[in-house]
Design a binder for these strands. Sequence first.
DNA 1: CAGAAGATTAGACAATGTCTAATCTGCGAC
DNA 2: GTCGCAGATTAGACATTGTCTAATCTTCTG
Lengths: 135, 135
Amino acid sequence: MKPDIVTILDEHGIQPSAQRVAVAEFVLSTTEHPSADRVWTGVQESFPMISRATVYNTLHLFVKKGLIRELHLAPDSVLFDSNIDRHHHFIDEETGRIYDIPWNQIEVNNMKTLRDFEIHDYQVVMRGRSRHPPG
Amino acid sequence: MKPDIVTILDEHGIQPSAQRVAVAEFVLSTTEHPSADRVWTGVQESFPMISRATVYNTLHLFVKKGLIRELHLAPDSVLFDSNIDRHHHFIDEETGRIYDIPWNQIEVNNMKTLRDFEIHDYQVVMRGRSRHPPG
DNA sequence: CAGAAGATTAGACAATGTCTAATCTGCGAC
DNA sequence: GTCGCAGATTAGACATTGTCTAATCTTCTG
């Protein structure tokens, strides 16, 4: 069990287990915003006997503990984002791929004029075409 | 078959039928961002024999023809928005209710610095608590 | 009226996500 | 150490959302 991953879990008040370390290792080392089932198949390569329910439980626990975030950007499934710094998202309409956009790259103003709403969080969601798709 | 609804369908290049008029009537007269199944049960009150497949087909057709828009904001289902003017969205984290925020209420700048992306569309998505929930 | 194109339908199917009840594991008290 | 218990994991059933298919029904056109 990787000690650094265990430390991260400890710091977030998550009791480490072999399964949780394997899930954390996978989800924290990708920038690809995987779905729960994608995480499941990915983790199975290093931990073949892990069950689907455990992956779902674990991801939800990680979200509750603030280790990762849940995204609702795609029609078919919830995605998970290991980047917990504030940032925006760009969705490539052709590939469905999701890109993180640094917080400071976009300036958003006038939010305080929304007197009827107490805003806990916000982000800009963009759709379009990526000019330089990676890989 | 309501003549005004038929006109709207015609204007969008949609062949009117009794079912399509019933779906349009429902979805164009609510600001509640219903899911497809919510539209189905809602339309059944005025058109009891409409099938689920027809509602799904019809909603997708409406989206393709630009009569309504599809939203991916909730974890469990796609929502439909009859407001096709540009606007932002606020999601009440307690109720899940979604509110439209007028386009001019929020100022977004610096988007042109995103040279790697060709942006076709964008919106600000906010989460929090509504101070004055309606009805 | 006949043929064709388009619309509707029921129900099968698929994918995603939740739940349950049983089992397993590991930590703390002794 | 080991006993017991809380917490973690599991397989598989279940629910919901959405898609697909093949048959039927409508409507438009000639």
